[in-house]
């Protein structure tokens, strides 16, 4: 059997009222692949991830997770909305990491990481805690399990967010701008954690503005604009030889802004240097 994509998206559209946020997106994410999605703000990157996890209902098209249609059921008369329970079953192997972490502030770090295991996978408490600690160790926070989210730095909170997703042992993790809410000096620790996951072969879809990360870690970079995929390919190709004027413009804007940052003493690394290690 040919390996089936972990995520298969076909002709996906999403409309908010009369506004088209996504129009005709088709994209496959293969096992162990790391795909970075870049593009200007408002281009539909978050909406794409949210439809892929069915946090947002899509208007038409199909999203399949490991061969199972997400959110709808095929019937003779077309697609019918699926029950919450079946939606949960299909996205059971999809994890998500949010821009604003979205940790539960009334629970300890370990509580955050083990809640899903205990309630939805019915793992007994002791075993769940063991699994949770292992996930925390992966993000370098094994000594923080009894803290509350408010007692952590932003970077640490986001690593807890990653551990929370990891603990469920998903087959793919979706990241929506995981470092955008962080102070510049905290970005590195989160990106390092993600690099480590990529090395371990975890399938990842990462919406990011960190071009250095995309260049170094992605197997494929997807450029979106106006609710469409404009261009995609290996990072070296995409960053060094952009075909579409819109991607060229996007990269130029990024480069000029990056130079300002470097004058500021911050060095996120450039696309070129990352693309060819």
């Amino acid at each position: 059997m040919a390996t089936q994509p972990t995520i298969r998206i076909r002709d996906l559209t999403k409309e908010f009222g009369t506004f088209s946020a996504l129009s005709g997106i088709s994209l496959d994410i293969n096992p162990s692949e790391v795909v970075c999605i870049i593009g200007p703000s408002g281009s539909g990157k978050s909406t794409l991830l949210r439809c892929t996890s069915f946090l947002e209902e899509y208007t038409s098209g199909e999203v399949e997770i490991e061969g199972r249609l997400l959110g709808y059921r095929r019937t003779a008369s077309g697609l019918v909305r699926e029950s919450e329970q079946n939606i949960d079953a299909v996205r059971r192997n999809v994890g998500m990491v949010f821009q604003h972490f979205n940790l539960w502030p009334h629970m300890t770090v370990l509580g955050n990481v083990t809640l899903g295991l205990r309630l939805t996978k019915h793992v007994p408490r002791a075993k769940a805690q063991e699994q949770g600690r292992r996930a925390l160790a992966k993000v370098g926070l094994e000594n923080f399990s009894d803290r509350y989210p408010s007692q952590l730095s932003g970077g640490q909170q986001q690593r807890v967010g990653i551990a929370r997703a990891l603990a469920m042992e998903p087959h793919v993790i979706l990241f929506d701008e995981p470092t955008s809410a962080l102070d510049p000096q905290l970005v590195g620790e989160v990106l390092d954690t993600m690099k480590q996951l990529a090395k371990e072969g975890i399938t990842m879809v990462v919406v990011t503005h960190e071009m250095g990360f995309a260049a170094q870690v992605a197997d494929r970079v997807v450029f979106m604009d106006g609710g469409k995929i404009i261009e995609q390919g290996p990072p070296a190709k995409l960053f060094n030889d952009p075909q579409s004027p819109r991607l060229q413009e996007f990269l130029d804007t990024w480069k000029s802004r990056n130079m300002l940052f470097q004058a500021d003493g911050r060095s996120p690394g450039t696309a070129e240097e990352g693309a060819r290690p």
């Binding site: 996890s53 946090l55 919450e84 329970q85 949960d88 996205r91 059971r92 999809v94 994890g95 998500m96 949010f98 604003h100 979205n102 940790l103 539960w104 809640l115 899903g116 309630l119 939805t120 996978k121 967010g161 929370r164 997703a165 469920m168």
Partner: peptide, 16 residues
């Protein structure tokens, strides 16, 4: 809302 979305992604049901 984000906390609720995180809970849904962890597989929690509405009552949970």
């Amino acid at each position: 809302k984000g906390q609720i979305e995180a809970a849904r992604m962890a597989g929690l049901s509405g009552p949970q």
